[in-house]
C-alpha cells in the first residue's frame, strides 16, 4: 500500500501537525519508502497466530481503587505555558 498527497494531508491533520505543500511532497516520498519496507510482512503466514498483547507472560498487577496521591494542582500546572489559578489556559473552544 502507498499513500498519496491527499492521504498525507489527512494523516497530518489527524496527527495535529501543520504541514506546508513542500512538507507534504517530501513526506509522501518518505512515508512510501517506509510503507514499502514494512510490506515484507506480507510474506509471513500469520494464520491462527495470536497478536501479542504482553511481551512478559505475567498478569498485569492490580491495586485497590483507592486515592493514594493527589492534591498537587500547583505542581501539575507549574510547567504549563499559560495557567491561571490552577487552570490550564487555552484559546476559546466553545462559541
Amino acid at each position: 500500500m502507498s499513500v498519496d498527497v491527499s492521504t498525507v494531508k489527512r494523516v497530518a491533520h489527524l496527527a495535529r501537525i501543520a504541514v506546508s505543500e513542500a512538507d507534504v511532497e517530501r513526506m509522501t516520498g518518505q512515508l512510501n519508502a517506509i510503507l514499502g519496507f514494512v510490506e515484507q510482512l506480507d510474506e509471513v503466514n500469520v494464520e491462527g497466530v495470536e497478536p501479542m498483547t504482553s511481551v512478559t507472560p505475567i498478569a498485569m498487577k492490580k491495586r485497590r481503587d483507592e486515592v493514594d496521591d493527589g492534591g498537587k494542582a500547583a505542581d501539575i500546572v507549574a510547567n504549563a505555558p499559560i495557567h491561571e489559578e490552577n487552570f490550564f489556559v487555552v484559546p476559546k473552544v466553545v462559541e
Binding site: 514494512v38 510482512l41 509471513v44 500469520v46 497466530v49 495470536e50 497478536p51 501479542m52 498483547t53 511481551v55
Partner: peptide, 13 residues
C-alpha cells in the same frame, strides 16, 4: 498493519 505486526511479534518471540 498493527494487528499483523503484533502477530509477527508473537512469531519472533
Amino acid at each position: 498493519y498493527y494487528l499483523k505486526a503484533q502477530k509477527v511479534r508473537t512469531l519472533i518471540k
